[in-house]
Design a binder for these strands. Structure first.
Lengths: 341, 341
DNA sequence: TTATTTTTGGTAATCGATTACATAAAACGA
DNA sequence: TCGTTTTATGTAATCGATTACCAAAAATAA
């Protein structure tokens, strides 16, 4: 077993006390230069490294933040986390990752675990219907910030994109390119982002005098298989759609694969637009129109909001709701031309 | 300020000592049932949660592991981390993420920070030329495991794929499909994985009686731009290649974009094969042949090797070198036919 | 030379949980 | 009834670093 050296070891070696060593290492003004140099030299020689755990226990600050996401191996969440890490690292914070796979129970378990480990903040893209566990975070006075998938709560900051606008823009684009029977892959409508996209979709229809047809809306779960299934279902309708606005790029991909397998022409027979701007949408045979959510920025801004909050001299409560504007990206899977009329 | 309750608060409330409370909470057999129930009830009522920091300081175990990667927003590393997290979470471990962007100084800084925070293990995909910082980890007796980008060190476990084999398989496939002038995008040859792929490439050439031509090897940095540049360079040769084996999917993508812009036919004029099986390679107009590295498995196995190591009753030193077998995935960017002869 | 101030460093409590050791009370046997 | 075992809990040290408070030594003033 190798030995880990502490300030007490340094103190013993120099016949001084740990308090002096601690002060010397922290460059405290009432330690003489001679002693400081001696301590520093000895620390160096022994390979001393500060135990952050002891410091964290004493100070109540762990310098860790927890990030809870459905999954980390998607480009979107990977980019958000990258943004958070890059922004926080210079301030000495570390990022603890937790995955929920969209499971509410796992999300609660993760929150508990993070609270136990005394993280200095929790950033979450939630999959929960309930806010009870978030209230527990607030009760412990731990900064909580939602990103992407938020819950609306008082005194809690959030960084999201305007999903309503994203849904609106995507749908409007389809309408402007001549489509009238526009289907929607919705995702779980209990989750705000999906509900907002859906609402944006409906609003765009209304604003353009198009009737909302309930059977055009299919609930999907952001994967290729669900996209295929959804298309199959839609094609069986007596009046199949001429466009699909999918709330996820993965469903859109599934839809496109299924449509092409059935020899539909995209975008001529059916236009398809996704959501998220996953890298693959750009490189595909038939590049997919989509909505960019700027995940890297979202991560960085989330981190900044957190930093503001902890540096706020703890007096006034900050509630900051940052809403990023999504961007429509038009590619080959939707028509660029104007209405046929 | 909200109050965080400790075992002392419970002890005071019940007029017993913290020791008893601690024992009751840990279901110690020599605490009476009555007291246990009382303590449990009071803890519940107060919303008590154990402070893991205090526990970690006392026990010397933080239940955190550090994972150091060049970047987290790539499918490959995202998947590895997902695998690690999934495997370790049931055992109560949390994963701290650090990014280096391939910068050696940042890697060292991250290692220092992780050691300071007393992590129970460090998993790293290294970008360093030097092993000095890893020796510091070992000196502190912290388990160290390399994955993907390793250094060869005694007493250190690693989980990698057989990059030599990957390079060999890719090159052999190109040869078998009739190519003879095979170029290679190499990456930084100081990094073992790239060097191994390169060696596999050369070996496949040799085994098939093809001369190794130095000017066919271009150093790239795993991004689209470098792939384009590399192709431009190769096409200027008096004897341009008829195939490219790229050590990265991103360079391969750049190469393909550049080649198509110049009206080369793929795979007829030039075959291209990448490395990693990034999702986009599958969905592209011209799907890209590549080598699968099974990143999720790599993460899970890395975690398992770690668990074995810490459960090893700390007596015998374990050095486990796991090498996964990569898989050739043939798609449209390479010919499937046999040699034209 | 004595009193006062300034330097410098020591003492001991603290953060929250665990645990070896000690001890009081209850239960038991003879 | 007295000694012995068992049961249940208390006491105090420990993990490593910080810091309010105090005290000796040195420097300065009177």
């Amino acid at each position: 077993m190798k030995k880990k050296f502490t300030i007490y070891d340094i103190a013993n070696a120099l016949n001084i006390t740990a308090a002096t060593v601690s002060r010397a290492l922290n460059d405290n003004p009432n330690i003489s230069k001679a002693t400081k140099e001696l301590v520093l030299k000895t620390a160096e020689k022994m390979g001393y490294e500060q135990n952050k755990l002891a410091l964290a226990l004493k100070s109540g600050k762990s310098n860790n933040v927890g990030v809870i996401v459905p999954r980390i191996d998607s480009n979107f969440f990977g980019s958000v986390i990258r943004g958070i890490e890059e922004e926080l690292n210079p301030f000495g914070y570390h990022v603890i990752i937790c995955q929920t796979n969209g499971d509410e129970a796992k999300e609660i378990a993760n929150i508990d675990a993070l609270l136990n480990s005394q993280v200095d903040g929790i950033f979450i893209s939630t999959s929960s219907k309930d806010v009870a566990s978030f209230e527990r975070i607030l009760r412990k006075d731990v900064p909580l910030i939602f990103f992407d998938r938020k819950k609306t709560m008082n005194n809690v900051s959030s960084v999201t994109i305007n999903d309503f606008d994203g849904g609106y823009k995507a749908t409007k684009h389809l309408i402007e390119s001549g489509c009238r029977q526009i289907a929607h892959f919705s995702g779980d409508l209990n989750i705000e982002i999906f509900n907002d996209r859906f609402t944006g979709y409906k609003q765009a229809l209304t604003d353009n005098g198009i009737d909302y047809i309930e059977e055009y809306v299919v609930k999907t779960r952001s994967n290729v298989e669900d996209g295929k299934k959804a298309v199959k279902k839609l094609l069986k309708l007596k009046n199949p759609p001429d466009a699909i606005f999918s709330s996820s790029d993965w469903d859109a991909l599934g839809a496109i694969q299924e449509l092409r397998a059935k020899n539909y022409k995209i975008p001529d027979d059916i236009s398809v637009i996704g959501f998220s701007n996953e890298p693959f949408t750009k490189f595909m045979e038939l590049s997919i129109s989509t909505i960019d959510q700027f995940p890297l920025d979202m991560g960085k801004i989330t981190a900044k909001v957190f930093l503001e909050q902890v540096n706020n001299s703890e007096k006034v409560k900050i509630e900051k709701k940052v809403v990023l504007e999504p961007e429509l990206i038009i590619r080959k899977s939707t028509k660029k031309t104007l209405p046929k009329k």
